[in-house]
Design a protein around this nucleic acid. Structure first.
Lengths: 251, 251
DNA sequence: AATCGATTTCCTGTATACATCTTGAATTCT
DNA sequence: AGAATTCAAGATGTATACAGGAAATCGATT
């Protein structure tokens, strides 16, 4: 999940992958644009072999699309695609929460999640929430979701959630920063935190259906955030992931 | 989905991928076993470049696991993993069915699904079901599930379902053939077909919750099949996918 | 006899050269 | 003038050579 790998001593493949991903997410490479290997070689300054590997990895990461006749192009997403991806993540996280509840997560395994919950509580308590607090929230929120996912105890489920969350606009914290510019910011954060509390409670009490339902609803909070952010377009710069959106945003 | 690509004129990468997949699924390469590139080169008779590509593809297909120090090993699965993968597919297909229902699939788009349903009906009507009929059922069943998935109208959902179904033991038709040897065979097929009927009806009537619930339950039929097949182990040879199961089956 | 260390071997990561196919443009024919 | 065909340029698929590193084996020392 962390991409701060000291820059040097990482494989050329990973370096190329990161460089290309940044270029795609920043919008330097437009959706639909074909990206040739030689182009990528020039950009990343590594040879074709690792570049090709990076392209393949980015393809199944979901950022690129294979062209039938060979090569890749930057994938384009509709607003509907983004909303669906969020709903998809919510559904999968719901499954994870249900598994955690039904299978009786031990008190010990719940401990880290509760700690994370407490940390989040402390953050949302401040009334005018600073930008730094928002940043910290993003980190803690990601951690909460990761812990919850792991609590499912199911490798296939964890794997699938990771893949779904790999889409930059579908990750649990994708649109949190967008809130920071909104007047409703604090309220939304409070509601999200309430969801967190409920899912922990539900898991603790073995209430599978409740745990599942609340995680689905929780994801829909991200949908709300996105819609709000798109409406007052002032702060779209906080959402680099939207560079992948077709017929949208800028210009 | 079909792998009959005329053998010649397919890329070396694909050829290597198919060959290695067959070897893994047939159990020739044991779970946990490390598979070196040179080994793969000898097996497939193609050079290292396409072999490496094939290995990467098989990794995100889920059959291989990357070793931190480099290289790959055949992934091993517990019985729990398999059951979870099936539940996972059911959950995703439930989401697809709900989308199809909520978004109002047009009468025209429902047509192929209904045709497929009718074809299936004709098959399950015979009382002692021949082995050939079972085979035909597998094909039609796969088609039904594919059509249903597409009816969601959501590319992200379709993509995720395809990925989940790529696991050989999680595909909709994985354990149908195992039934053919069971006395309960006909009943299970009838129940499955009833599920098919219900989901079409639910979609037609815009009953999202019903459509979702029935697809979840439908997947659990596969769980039942698997459990039955594992109990009377006579016909495990019909389940090549189980070669990936750890501490199990043969010997 | 066991453990530590050094050497050797094999394996992966990377770069590049070559062949084939696709694509686009220019020219020619209708 | 428009369309079709051919040719050229570039891009991808494939093979292989080279380098760096990991792991296993063998030997030496305690």
């Amino acid at each position: 999940m962390s991409e701060r790998e000291s820059e040097r001593s990482v494989s050329q493949t990973v370096r190329a992958q990161m460089a290309l991903r940044d270029l795609i997410l920043s919008g330097s490479l437009r959706p639909g644009e074909r990206i040739s290997e030689l182009q990528a070689v020039e950009i990343t300054s590594v040879s074709r072999t690792p570049v090709r590997l990076a392209l393949v990895r980015l393809e199944d990461e979901g950022l690129l699309q294979a062209i039938p006749s060979g090569g890749f192009m930057v994938k384009a997403f509709s607003e509907r695609d983004i909303l669906d991806s969020i709903e998809l993540r919510g559904t999968l996280e719901g499954l994870a929460a249900r598994f955690a509840a039904e299978r009786g997560a031990s008190a010990r395994s719940l401990e880290p999640l509760k700690e994370c919950l407490a940390d989040l509580d402390q953050l949302v308590r401040q009334d005018p929430i600073s930008v730094e607090a928002f940043s910290a929230y993003v980190t803690l929120n990601a951690r909460f979701h990761a812990l919850l996912t792991e609590l499912s105890g199911s490798a296939p489920v964890i794997r699938q959630i990771d893949r779904a969350s790999a889409m930059p606009f579908a990750s649990p914290s994708a649109f949190v920063m967008a809130q920071s510019a909104l007047p409703e910011a604090h309220n939304i954060l409070l509601i999200g935190q309430e969801h967190h509390r409920i899912v922990v409670d539900a898991i603790e009490n073995r209430e599978g259906a409740r745990a599942e339902a609340i995680m689905r609803e929780h994801a829909r909070l991200a949908v709300r955030n996105l819609r709000l952010a798109l409406r007052n377009r002032n702060h779209l710069d906080l959402l680099p992931a939207l560079a992948l959106l077709t017929s949208a945003t800028s210009d």
